[in-house]
Amino acid sequence: MINVTIDGVRVEVPKGATILEAAQEAGIRIPTLCYLKKLSPIGSCRMCVVEVEGCTKPVTACDTPAGDGMVVTTDSEELREMRRDVLRLLLVRHPLDCPVCDKGGECDLQDLVYEFGVTAESYRTEPFERDVPRYVSPFIRQWPDRCVLCGRCVRACKEVKGVGCIQIVDNGFYSYIGPVPGVECISCGECLSVCPVGALTDSVHPTKARIWQAERVPTTCGYCGVGCQLELNVLNGEVIRVTTTDFDRAPNFGSLCVKGRFGWEFVNHPDRLEKPLVRKDGELKEATWDEALGLVARKLQEIKDEHGADAVGGLSSARCTNEENYLFQKFMRAVIGTNNVDHCARL
């Protein structure tokens, strides 16, 4: 363990901890933009600059390991001005289109600009045109001008998903997030989930909703057996997108695959059954619940009476909940009286 003093607060942190982690331990917030806990820190946005006693230049807190006896200052007028300049420079390119941006209200840049009281007029460049190719995933829309090049998406794609299909393309001011030739995107949307601004937006559902209008219901994904935790975003009784905002939640820590993140449309699909159907004259016709359930009860009872309980079989479901599976086998065993119950565990 090493001792670090942050703004006069002494904390003990493990060797190898960064200055930012030490500050968090001390309960001191250092503004960040490119930093995300689950990704390796790169110190590229330069928002987290701090002063370290004995160092002639400011250092970035997120990717500099703390040293024993280090004395750190996280806030001064000079540091605030450096941070303001970072934001001013970002606003050279980033349009102030917050009113029409999907991320308005949930945007790290918006929050920081607000916090530091910065306007867009300080620095400017000559007008220029940029040609950015289509984004790697058809499920995601890219807004290159909104991009702050924090590289979170690039790191998430590489470090979390092990894919590495995006990178910073071109140099300097003309950089943008573009494809890595020869590496296929799997449309998992990891990049989308870590973007701090509205540079990547979900393009599946046409309905837009301000962050605070949609309700986010945490639940478990209904596809494979991993059991990813996700949030269904609901507006006016319809799912409009899936998000993951809690990166500390096992087992997926905010990651999903293409099915989990973009495969929710079937819930709203017009093919969904809405009424019970009963076969009449060889065709399935709509019926009331009473009619349908009455028929099922009668027929099952008849067959049970005539051929014995074991003439009835039941398939429960690897798709349904535990409670439903429990009730189904209870029904088969206690009500019908047979152990003929199975499901597709083997498929």
């Binding site: 478990t220 994904c221 209904g222 596809y223 494979c224 057996g225 059991g227 429960s316 479901s317 690897a318 798709r319 349904c320 909940t321 535990n322 599976n325 429990y326 189904f328 086998q329 065993r333 119950v341 199975d342 499901h343 597709c344 565990a345």
Partner: peptide, 13 residues
Amino acid sequence: QNNVQGACDMGGL
């Protein structure tokens, strides 16, 4: 599948 474990645990066998 999402709940193949649960379906087995619940006696769907």
